[in-house]
Amino acid sequence: MSDPILTLDGVFTNIAQYHILQGVDLQVPRRQVTMLLGRNGVGKTTTLRSVIGHWRARQGTIRFDGQDITRMPTPAIARAGIGFVPEDMGIFADLTVEENMVLAAASGPIDPGRLEWIFGAFPPLKTFWTSEAGNLSGGQKQMLSIARAMIEERKLYLIDEPTKGLAPAIISTMARALRELKAQGASILLVEQNFAVAKALGDTANVMDDGRVIWSGPMAQLARDAGLQEQLMGLSLEAH
């Protein structure tokens, strides 16, 4: 296997007085979907936010594509080639869908071919192209949020719970889009609570608990082993 696109090495991150990450070791291989799993509050979102630089790692190193990005400012990390889809979607509600997308294509004009591909994956975005993003439904906002990351080719996508709170039909749209992204050879680090989606998309899995990665291995192996799921995440995922 070639060198990983992203490597976290003993990362500790505090939020105020709380020690959220306590030595995260994580590798994201190139051209794969890497799942980050675990119960609520174990530090999955904080891990993504430490990578993009929203929270600063107090200790440890984060290397992206051969470059140490631990202390780099967020815009520089983004420009180095990381697309981030936060859990709260973070769309610009006062701006139109089009303006949101134009802003997201930070390095230049939108590539028409790529836009067509995104319209194919998320048809509502074409329908509501000139509407204010704040008027979209929850699912459409999530589509826009992911589309914004996809509008330019990035070396790595960090995606935080893209299916949270969405209707099943929209979840499958989301999963299909992510599968297409993967098929294009993108590297993705995905936080996902929906185990069916995780199983369908994930190549490797990392399970976190208490601010650390406690298990890494093939997603298929985790998906097969209900006992392991129970042991790692404290619940039987077969029920899902």
Partner: peptide, 9 residues
Amino acid sequence: FRAEAIGYR
């Protein structure tokens, strides 16, 4: 923060 994460200073 979102604007920064897209790459704007």
